[in-house]
Structure formats: C-alpha cells, structure tokens
C-alpha cells in the first residue's frame, strides 16, 4: 500500500500516526461510557476547554507567568554557575569547594527543598525561584566543568600561542570548545527546572493572584473542571516538546553539528 509505505518512511508522519492511534484509543474508552466525564473527559471537551482558556486569556497568562519564572531562574542559575565555574578554574582550592557542594546538592530533587524554601521565603515567587535555581545550577556546573576539562590541549595551546590569556582564553577557546557539554548542561537544567516548576506551583499555589500552569491545574482540579486540567497538561507537553525538540535541536544544528563536534543525526 503506497500510503502505508509513505507513513512508515517519514518520521513526522510516523509519529503523527502513533499519536492518532493513542487519541483513538482514548476516545474509544470514553465512548464505552464506563467512566465519568470528571475522570476521563471527551477529547472534544478538552479541545473546547483549551480553546476557551486560550480565548479568555487565562491560558496565555498562566503560560507566560511560568515561562517568566523559568526564564528568570535560568538567568540567575546560569550566571551563578558561570561565576562558580570560572572561580573554580582560577583556584584549585575553590574548585574542590565547588566540586563538594555540587556532589552534595546535585542528587537532591528541587521539590525536596520546598519546606526549606517555605521557611526562608514564605509562599511566593522567591521560594519557587530558589527551587528552580537549585535544579538549574548543579547540572550546568557539572557539565561545564567536564567540558572545560576535555578541551583539546592543542587548541588551548594555539590560543595561548596567539597571545590569549585569562578570561579571553576562556571565552574564545574554552567555551566554544566545551560547547557540546555546556549545551547538554542546559538541556538537563531546562528539563529539571520545567518539571520542578510545575510541581512547585501545584504545592505553593499562587502568590498575590499570580500563578503559572501548575497553579492552573491545581485550581481546575479543585473546581472539578477536568477538561481544563487536561488542556493545561497538553500545553505543558507542547512547551516541553517545543523547547527540547525544536529550540535545542536548532541550536545544536547551528553550532556543534555545523562544527562537526557531534555526529550528524539521521533523518
């Protein structure tokens, strides 16, 4: 069959095909009528909820707030990671210190810091930020450090031979050379913090009328508006896919793939 062949050959079509099957199964189970709308809503009601929450601006607002928080945390986290890694490279003693705290904190899930964050900052943006920065900073430091250690000796020497020293050597040779590791660090940081964010928001709720997607889910569940819960989950998945499979993939293509630092991905 030509259509079947086309579907099995194209990656995007193939994935769309699997998604269609999953949705079909979902709709079939709903149509048996064994489950209440409150537990397993109709695909059509989820769609209506999604369209409704978008048109009222609620979904956009919540999403924007979540993205704002994570953007702020990424800025703070990568800034701190940069400073700590740079200082660690200048002083072996400080390097030991950074290594120790990274070893201690990296295995700790962000959400586990919730009680502490509450004690320190109370309910609000700062508590969530603390958790997010925590889930961003350690994987970044870990990967950047490994990356800096794997910089080609020859390239480092070429840089020094040209007269580059100190920060200039770091930014012009070490950072681009370690870029595959740094990018991996950012990928892990993103996925850690995105997951922590949703979890933290659900537990913290909103502060001063503001809240993100996690808060939206919590709220809608409270009012038993199940289709809206699923609509929010859908948006969370969509953003995850967009960032991980589109934005990061594109950065990878422009940098380390173009530079021949990783093997070209197959179609």
């Amino acid at each position: 069959m030509p259509i079947l062949k086309k579907v099995t050959e194209n990656k995007i079509l193939r994935q769309a095909f699997f998604i269609a099957i999953l949705l079909g199964v979902w709709q079939y189970i709903v149509s048996t009528g064994n489950y209440s709308e409150l537990i397993l809503p109709n695909l059509r009601s989820i769609w209506t909820a999604l369209v409704d929450s978008i048109s009222t601006g609620e979904m956009g607002e919540r999403t924007a707030y979540s993205l704002y928080l994570i953007g702020k945390a990424l800025a703070i986290g990568s800034g701190l990671a940069l400073i700590l890694t740079a200082l660690a490279m200048l002083s072996p003693l400080f390097a030991d210190f950074v290594k120790t705290i990274t070893t201690i904190f990296n295995p700790l899930p962000g959400v586990a810091l919730l009680p502490i964050a509450l004690l320190w900052f109370g309910i609000g943006e700062n508590s969530i930020l603390l958790i997010l920065v925590h889930s961003i900073i350690w994987p970044l430091i870990l990967n950047a450090t490994t990356g800096f250690r794997s910089v080609s000796r020859t390239q480092l020497e070429v840089g020094r031979n040209l007269g580059l020293r100190g920060l200039k050597l770091v930014s012009s040779v070490m950072v681009p050379s370690a870029f595959p590791y740094i990018l991996t660090g950012f990928k892990i940081s993103w996925s850690n913090s995105w997951r922590s964010l949703v979890a933290a928001e659900m537990i913290f709720g909103a502060s001063g009328g503001q809240g993100g997607l996690g808060w939206l889910i919590y709220q809608k569940r409270f009012f038993l508006q199940t289709p809206y819960v699923f609509a929010a989950l859908f948006v969370i998945i969509l953003i995850g896919i967009l960032v991980e499979n589109v934005i990061f993939a594109q950065i990878e293509k422009w940098t380390i793939q173009r530079w021949g630092m990783i093997i070209q991905k197959e179609k």
Binding site: T154, E157, V158, P176, S177, F179, T255, W259
Partner: peptide
Amino acid sequence: FQEFDQLFPW
C-alpha cells in the same frame, strides 16, 4: 603543531 586538531573547529 604536529597534531591535526590545531584549527578551531567552530
């Protein structure tokens, strides 16, 4: 250098 990786790959 004698090494083949002396150009900056980026």
